[in-house]
């Protein structure tokens, strides 16, 4: 394995395969987007993941990034699910999330990666509004635009309690450069300015997560670990079906009420001041 390939994360693929029991490769789509319909609990669930493909047609999207092909293909696979279940019970969709970033490249901008990622967002949100329980399972990085396109429209977000699981708007090294801080300073800052933190336990304080799954190391997929994650997914799906189809739950947790109180206050005022007609 070359040094280039050794830093490619295998977590997304491993969890996808462990949960779905399939390799997820499709004949018609790129090798970087995995899709499988598999039984979870007592129903069929669609699993999706974006994984590295060193052979990808677009050179800037070979390390697991969400690029043009990945985002448009996610949109296709999600919309396909909506079509499949027309007139039936909408099946859950589980996004297995391990995405280091969106693809950074000249071609990507030219051809419209913003639109490709919007298409993925659009598809996931449309599925959610159509009654498909959409669950994001964070097993690795959930970075920036890549997470927006693959996971952030979910009804419920679950994360493994593992140091390699992180949500952020910018990679650590880049954020350090831009904010003119050292990586150490950035970590220290994250302890006081919670939204700046790269630690999933601090992210949990924002009230956006449904649950942090404890006792499962992301790199050790023993039978017990997989069984526990399956159980948590089933519970999250059931919780979703009992709730609404929008994202309002993200402001309703105790954690959100504490940390996002400014969001809640500005909403309260806007609602009060909004004209009646």
């Amino acid at each position: 394995m070359s040094a280039e390939q050794s830093d490619l994360s295998v977590r997304g693929r491993q969890w996808f395969e462990a949960l779905s029991g399939e390799n997820g490769v499709t004949a018609s789509g790129p090798a970087s987007v995995l899709k499988a319909d598999a039984v979870l609990g007592d129903e069929t669930v669609r699993f999706l993941a974006v994984v590295p493909d060193p052979e990808s047609r677009f050179p800037r999207a070979r390390k697991g990034e969400v690029g043009l092909e990945q985002a448009w293909t996610l949109a296709k696979y999600v919309r396909e699910t909506i079509e499949l279940d027309k007139g039936a019970t909408p099946r859950p969709i589980v996004a297995v999330v391990d995405v280091p970033s969106q693809a950074y490249g000249r071609r990507e901008e030219l051809i419209g990666i913003y639109l490709a990622c919007a298409a993925a967002v659009d598809a996931y949100a449309t599925a959610r509004m159509a009654g498909h329980p959409v669950i994001a399972l964070l097993v690795g990085k959930a970075m920036s635009g890549a997470f927006l396109a693959h996971g952030y429209q979910a009804n419920r977000i679950l994360a493994l309690d593992d140091p390699g699981v992180m949500v952020h708007a910018m990679g650590k090294a880049a954020a350090a450069r831009v904010t003119k801080r050292s990586v150490e300073d950035l970590d220290a800052l994250g302890e006081t300015v919670v939204p700046m933190s790269y630690d999933i336990r601090n992210y949990a304080k924002l009230g956006l997560l449904h649950k942090v799954i404890k006792g499962v190391a992301a790199d050790s997929l023993g039978a017990d670990a997989v069984a526990l994650v399956r159980k948590e997914l089933v519970a999250a799906i059931s919780d979703t079906r009992a709730g609404g189809r929008d994202l309002s739950i993200r402001l309703e947790s105790d954690a959100a009420k504490k940390v996002r109180h400014a969001s809640i206050e500005v909403r309260k005022r806007l609602i009060e001041q909004w004209p009646d007609a």
């Binding site: 949100a125 952030y152 952020h168 300015v193 939204p195 924002l206």
Partner: peptide, 24 residues
């Protein structure tokens, strides 16, 4: 320019909510 880096994760989260609101 997108997410305000000083509010990183809350900026990203609210952008996801903006997306949802436009689509709805």
């Amino acid at each position: 320019g997108g997410v305000r880096l000083q509010e990183a994760n809350l900026g990203l989260a609210v952008i996801a909510e903006i997306h949802a609101a436009i689509i709805a």
